[in-house]
Design a binder for these strands. Structure first.
Lengths: 329, 329
DNA sequence: CCGGCGAACTTAATCGTTTAAGGAATGATG
DNA sequence: CATCATTCCTTAAACGATTAAGTTCGCCGG
């Protein structure tokens, strides 16, 4: 196929070893030879064969990227993380390889040798994630894994408690006396943290918690019923923190049918921002989780961890800010 | 690291070559030995080293997956394609490797050896795509590439003309006399085909075309102005085929501010379906492009092409149906 | 004049796998 | 019994890179 080290050596009349040392900046060749080798490599378009390198160095420069099987289908958020991961690795030697997520069996199927894993939103019901963490390979998680899993090498996470407090403060500022929480999944640490923070806030502010738990595949009718129940309570819920991706517009549409609107006395905050919130009519305030940034940071952290000597004593934790983007009047 | 062929051979007291032949079903070993080897492999947890195989067979079983740099950020559609690709390769020996997309420079950065490429929505303004097609490696495109690019080995595409006709027929059935077309990008063959089909339909039905071209980053105010212009024409546009991902709800919101609604005399069809259309209030009819299916079919086609002897004389084309999902009253 | 030393290479081993070529044992055939 | 094919295995050579361990050669110091 392409030019090999041996081709290059033959062309120059020296040994392959010398060429290797020359190109890798190792001592053992004269500066003159090094320069000649560099020129010849350029001229013949030499690209080191990654497979040969991988075999020799037992290092593939490939990182497995694992997404939970369940959620990805509803989510624009994951596409953003993906973009971020690709961008983050683009600056490094590493390449992301997409792993098939494990269904109920919990077995991650066979895949090529990789140097580490990036696990996106480890969900407690995803057995494949446990398996990857158990492998002992360098692993960076985007959002913390459940406590029952092996500790990862690193974690990139959002400041969810602060985001929850900011959101509730905003809802109160917009006139809500009993802001509720609408959650969509409870298998992620992120949603567990938000729920805990919400309850803390309620205790602090003497508010009776109003938690509406739905699933992504529930029908509009069912959800509307749950909403009406909380809105018709003795002390009615009068604002919502919607902690799921792409759910807030759906809720806004349902509320409209019963005469409530984000700009008409029923404030709404989405826990996950996206262009959908920005371009909704009226625009919806949201927490900017910066999923793209998650991807970039996770990729970079992985590159750093692989360059270091070994596993850090404690998991490296990077907490990214998650500011509230206020929209509308 | 793991158990190697040599370990296994040593354990059994035979040569590594015999073990290899036994496990790969090649002739040259007795059935008894073969069975013994299989048992030992199972017992010692032997997994062939992919890097070693790759080097020997000059075949990595890895496929580069390329997404255009521009669009991915607005799109739920791409996340679905990604899922499909992962699922499609899960049945095969192959693994998808995410390639960093080329920006303006047109250079796809360095990445490990791959056996072929899956290029998602080749956009005519994406130079990286041209480069990959020029490489001569097996390439399957999801949606056809522009005519100016090298021909790919295979293409998976939607029946866009039929989808356009179905959508327009539906709009007319819902009362539109002059259905318009709202397009969001013109760099993909898909949107070019839709626009051409729309114009054909207009000629056949004696309708004056109403085409509204927007970009994804345009403000709501700008878009509203464009809409109002067409709605205020002498023969007003009175229905819309919205040919972009996740745009229809945005348009529906804007139309609502000027008293038009999908269930109130201004029918809407989205050219790209998603849960957003399903759960919108009111639900929005849409073309089910089945992006997940695209991914699966592209992956399978790649596996088939690699198993065949060489490049097919003509690009293999697989056209998937894109049915209209009718929603609402 | 010779031992020793550093510079600049080359040789050879290695990573884990596959496969062509070679060889020993067995059985059949003339 | 010699010949030959067949079966079942071993040996050895790749694939493309890196690197430890030689091998020259010139040069300096004693």
């Amino acid at each position: 196929m392409g030019t090999t080290l041996k081709d290059l050596a033959g062309h120059l009349g020296i040994s392959a070893a010398a060429v290797s040392m020359a190109l890798n900046g190792k001592p053992g060749v004269s500066e003159q030879t090094r320069e000649e080798v560099r020129r010849a490599a350029e001229e013949l378009g030499y690209r080191p064969n990654r497979t040969g390198q991988a075999l020799r160095l037992s290092r593939t420069n490939t990182i497995g990227v694992y997404f939970p099987s369940t959620v990805m289908e509803y989510s624009l958020y994951f596409a953003e993380i993906m973009r971020g991961i690709v961008a983050g690795f683009a600056d490094t030697e590493l390449s992301p390889l997409l792993l098939p997520s494990a269904g109920e069996t919990g077995l991650v199927r066979d895949f090529p040798e990789v140097d580490g894993f990036v696990v996106v939103e480890p969900h407690s019901d995803d057995l494949g994630m446990f398996e990857l963490l158990r492998s002992g390979r360098p692993t960076v998680c985007i959002d913390p894994p459940p406590a029952s899993a092996e500790a990862p090498w690193g974690v990139v996470e959002a400041d969810a408690p602060a985001a929850t407090r900011d959101s509730l403060r905003h809802l109160v500022a917009r006139g809500a006396a009993r802001p509720g929480l609408l959650t969509i999944e409870s298998v992620s640490e992120w949603s567990r943290t938000i729920e805990a923070s919400y309850r803390d806030w309620c205790v602090e502010h003497g508010v009776d918690p109003a938690i509406i738990a739905i699933t992504a595949r529930q029908s509009n009718e069912e959800i509307l019923e749950l909403l009406e129940r909380e809105l018709g309570a003795p002390v009615p819920c009068d604002g919502l923190f919607v902690a799921g991706d792409a759910v807030a517009p759906r809720i806004a549409g349902l509320l409209r049918t019963i005469g409530r609107s984000p700009d008409g006395g029923f404030p709404l905050v989405s826990g996950v921002d996206s262009t959908m919130m920005e371009f909704h009519t009226p625009p919806i305030s949201a927490i900017d989780l910066n999923p793209y940034g998650y991807g970039v940071h996770a990729a970079r952290m992985m590159a750093v961890l692989l360059h270091e000597s070994g596993r850090p004593a404690e998991p490296r934790i990077e907490r990214l800010p998650a500011p509230l983007v206020v929209r509308g009047t």
